[in-house]
Every structure is written in structure tokens, then in C-alpha cells.
Design a protein around this nucleic acid. Structure first.
Length: 477
DNA sequence: TCACTGGCCATTTGGCTGGT
DNA sequence: ACCAGCCAAATGGCCAGTGA
């Protein structure tokens, strides 16, 4: 962002003449903006000057008048170009925070560059200022550094407390969300850089064009929603006006959604592992192996609890209470429970071969676990040449990752002759709810089993069968 | 060598809210 | 009261490690 904008002539010139020197978009923004210095600076930071304007180096020690001195470049159309040209001429990195660029508004506009040494003095723990108007690379570095920020140890200093507050504020979003945002912001930085457009603050119509370009690359509309949410996040973090609210962005999004729907774009959910499929998967498990005992417990608990892969991976023995009728499982944190209030799941004894409680107890006993994560890695020692047997397997101390849970499901799906790509971690949850539906379980009970707050998500999970066979009024007419 | 993990990016799912 | 849209969070695919 421009460090300064100065009027060297009658200030009225700015609002009468200036619009003729800038692009149409900035002209509209100028017309709609207030007459304060800040809006002017913000709009001109992203404006394109079709005529091209020169860049000068301000003389040392004269910060009052910004009198142009040594010419550095000519024919520039954007603030960013001026910054890059000044950085190159002065031998500084383009994202150098001490490099300042101002705009002088006289009969002909002039960019002015100077070095502000006082700018670097920052107290330890003080926030790094957002790289407004700087290169896309600088924005990318800044956001990555902000996201990676650690919570400092309390030492009763105000600055530390402020730094901690900023770090906590970032943790308001789940790690998965931040990861997704980071990827989206990277995509925006790369695109805006390629097209020489301002990266931060961004302009609404540029973002709309970015979304259209991403759609052109084949991104799904929901991915574009994420891109937009990430750019909103970026601007909030940088304390900038949020350009994603621009009507151009909303209209472009709506158009993309409608067009995608017209072309028959629809989500591809994972296949439900309903009871019959689950039985086929379980049949493939080798119960002689330790990993097999674990996987049986994993699949059965995931199914009867209608659980997500992340929930399964996070179960700890401390969360499981054994009771006369089965097990109670406490989920300390999950998607539907954002504040981490905790959710209890009942796992009943079923008295059948497929009893999840017995499968769980068998695994705990075979693995000799007393505390910590329930589902862990099994290390199988490599087979030695000439040895008749492998060594004893070793149980890891860490929990399986949620990804591995999904891979277990896919592994047995492949063994059972299904296409493994149709299955995933979600198959267990969908399978449980679908099985319930097929057995005429009341939707309110399915909703509770799925731990959904409303009925709307439930329908997504159900795999509907034959529309003729299942017609609700079939036997009534 | 086996059985995983973790980074990166894309995609799907879930819950809430504001506008009607 | 309802629903589309927004934002948040989770999941999926691919691939390059990695530790026992």
C-alpha cells in the first residue's frame, strides 16, 4: 500500500482531474469513496495509471515535501511496479519494510521512493505489520508466518500478552481449516502475481476474475467457496476492508454455481458400507494377525458408533468406560461439537458374532494396552532369510492417523473385491445410517446416532435403494 | 520390507445465520 | 418458518519419506 499521497496543487484537483488518470474500476471507486486521505491512499494503491508515471527518489532528510530528486524509472502504471523498480534500483528486497513509496499529485502524478530507517524498530513480540501493497511473495510469507505463530509463555509483560492474544485468535479456526486457507491464499498469490494485480488489499473484481479462472481450471464450485472464505480471512487478518463482499464476487460465484448445476456437476460421496458390505469386509480380516484383531475392532466400533475417521483415530482408553450393557465412549472433540463440550456414544453388547464390544476388548487384551490411544500402529518385523517365523510384532505408542483409518477401510474393500476408491473413512458412518434406514429405524434415532443437529445432513448420508421397491406408498394403494 | 505417516492440494460435509 | 449462502471442518488422493 502507498505510504503517502500528497496533493501539491489545489486539493479539488484530486477529485476533478485525477479520475482521468486512472483505470475505469478505480475511477468508480474514487467516485464512491469518501474524501479522506486513507480511502484515497487505498484506492490509488491498487489503481492502474494508463498514461504511465515516473518514479523519483526523495532526497535524504527531507520528509516534509517529498520533493522529487533522482529519477529511478519511467512509464509505470501500478504502485507495485513502482515498488519493484525502486527496490531493484536501490538494491533492496521488494518486500523491505523500510522502503516507502508515495504518490505526489500535481498536474502530472509522480511516484516517490524513500527509505524510512525508523520503520524497522519494532519491539520483540510486536505484531509484524501486514504487507499491504507489497509483492505476492511478501504476502505469502507473512500469512505463513502468522499461521505458524506459537503461543508465547506468559511472563507478565503486556507485549507478551498481546502476542498471546493474537496467537489464540488464530486458533479460533481448526488446524484443518487453516491448512485449507493457506493453500487457497497461495493460489491467489500466484495468480495475482502472474497478472500483475494487487494481492493485498485485493480488489473485488480481481477476485471475481480469479474465481472464474479457477473454475476454468476445473475447480468445483465448493472449492471456490473455500477460496473466497480464505481471502476474506486474509483481509480480516491484515485489518483491511474485505473485498470478497463485493457484488461482482457474489454474482460471479452465483453464476458459477448455477452453470455447474446446469452441467450436472454433483458431489461424489463415498459408498456406504452397510451391513452386507461390512460383513464382506470383516470376512477378509486375518484374525491370526495382531493388526487383523485391531482392524476388526476398528471397523465394528466405527460402524456401530456411526463414527468419523478422525473420531475413531482419537479414541483413548481413558475415554472408554465399561458397563454391564456395553461401553460408553466419550468423544472429547469432533466436527459437530466445535466448542469441545464432549459427546458420549453408547456401544452395546450385541450378543452376536459382530459384537463391537467383544472385538474392542479382544484388541485391548491382545495388544496389552492399559492407557493412551486405542488404535495404534502394529510394527511387523521383516521376514529374515532362512527364518521360519517373523519376530513378535511391536505395538506403537502413538495413535493411528485418521488417514490410516480410511486406508484400513479401503484395504479390506479391495480384498473383498470392491473398488477401493469408492470407499473411505466416511463409508462406516454412511453405512451405519443406511443400514438403520433399511431397517425402518425412525429418522430421529438415526439423527441421534449420527450426532447431527438437524435432519438436513442426514439425507446426504443415506444411500437410497430402489425407488420402486422403496416407494413409501407402494403397498397402500 | 512392511506398515505406516505427513505434506500438499482438491473436494465433501456440516452448522449457522440473515434475508425473505 | 424456511432456505440459500457462507464459512468452517473433515475427508480424499497422491506421493515421498520413515522407523522398526
Amino acid at each position: 500500500m502507498l505510504s503517502d499521497v500528497r496533493c501539491l496543487t489545489n486539493p479539488d484537483w484530486v477529485f476533478e482531474e485525477l479520475p482521468r488518470h486512472v483505470d475505469r474500476l478505480s475511477r468508480e471507486r474514487l467516485a464512491g469513496a469518501g474524501r479522506d486521505q486513507d480511502s484515497l491512499r487505498r484506492i490509488l494503491s491498487t489503481a492502474r495509471f494508463p498514461a504511465g508515471i515516473p518514479l523519483h527518489l526523495a532526497p535524504d532528510g527531507d520528509d516534509a515535501a517529498l520533493r522529487p530528486n533522482r529519477p529511478l524509472a519511467d512509464g509505470l502504471t501500478l504502485y507495485l511496479e513502482a515498488r519493484a523498480a525502486a527496490a531493484e534500483q536501490l538494491g533492496r528486497p521488494a518486500d523491505d519494510a523500510t522502503l516507502q513509496i508515495g504518490l505526489e499529485l500535481g498536474p502530472e502524478p509522480v511516484f516517490v521512493a524513500w527509505i524510512d530507517a525508523g520503520h524497522t524498530t519494532r519491539l520483540p513480540g510486536e505484531a509484524v505489520p501486514p504487507p499491504l501493497g507489497q509483492s505476492a511473495a511478501a504476502v505469502r510469507h507473512w500469512i505463513e508466518a502468522r499461521i505458524a505463530q506459537e503461543i508465547p509463555t506468559a511472563d507478565d509483560r503486556l507485549e507478551t500478552a498481546r502476542a498471546a492474544a493474537r496467537a489464540y485468535a488464530l486458533r479460533a479456526a481448526a488446524p484443518n481449516t487453516l491448512r485449507a486457507y493457506r493453500a487457497s491464499i497461495r493460489a491467489w498469490c500466484a495468480w495475482s502475481e502472474r497478472h500483475a494485480l494487487p494481492c493485498l488489499p485485493a480488489r473485488g473484481p480481481d477476485i471475481a476474475a480469479f474465481l472464474a479462472a479457477e473454475r476454468g481450471r476445473g475447480m468445483s464450485p465448493t472449492t471456490l467457496d473455500l477460496r473466497r472464505a480464505a481471502l476474506t480471512y486474509l483481509h480480516r487478518l491484515a485489518d483491511c476492508p474485505v473485498p470478497t463482499q463485493d457484488s461482482a464476487v457474489a454474482a460471479t460465484q452465483a453464476g458459477i454455481r448455477r452453470d455447474a448445476a446446469a452441467r450436472g456437476h454433483a458431489p461424489k460421496p463415498k459408498r456406504a458400507a452397510a451391513l452386507d458390505v461390512l460383513q464382506a469386509l470383516l470376512a477378509e480380516i486375518d484374525l491370526a494377525s495382531l493388526a487383523g484383531v485391531r482392524d476388526r475392532a476398528l471397523l465394528l466400533i466405527g460402524f456401530i458408533g456411526a463414527m468419523r475417521r478422525s473420531e475413531l483415530a482419537a479414541i483413548r482408553i481413558e475415554h472408554v468406560t465399561q458397563e454391564a450393557r456395553g461401553l460408553t465412549l466419550r468423544l472429547p472433540l469432533s466436527k459437530g461439537d466445535r466448542q469441545g463440550a464432549g459427546v458420549d456414544i453408547a456401544l452395546p453388547y450385541t450378543g452376536s458374532d459382530l459384537c463391537p464390544v467383544r472385538a474392542y476388548l479382544a484388541w485391548i487384551e491382545r495388544a496389552g494396552l492399559a492407557e493412551g490411544p486405542v488404535f495404534r500402529r502394529v510394527f511387523v518385523p521383516p521376514k529374515r532369510p532362512f527364518a521360519l517365523t517373523r519376530g513378535e510384532p511391536v505395538i506403537g505408542s502413538e495413535a493411528l492417523s485418521d488417514r490410516s483409518v480410511a486406508r484400513v477401510v479401503q484395504h479390506y474393500a479391495a480384498k473383498a473385491g470392491f473398488d477401493p476408491s469408492e470407499f473411505g473413512g466416511h463409508s462406516l458412518k454412511r453405512g451405519a445410517l443406511t443400514t438403520g434406514m433399511r431397517n425402518q429405524v425412525h429418522p430421529s434415532r438415526l439423527k441421534r446416532l449420527g450426532r447431527h443437529k438437524s435432519y438436513a445432513p442426514l439425507d446426504h448420508y443415506l444411500e437410497h435403494g430402489d425407488a420402486f421397491e422403496d416407494h413409501p406408498l407402494k403397498n397402500l394403494l
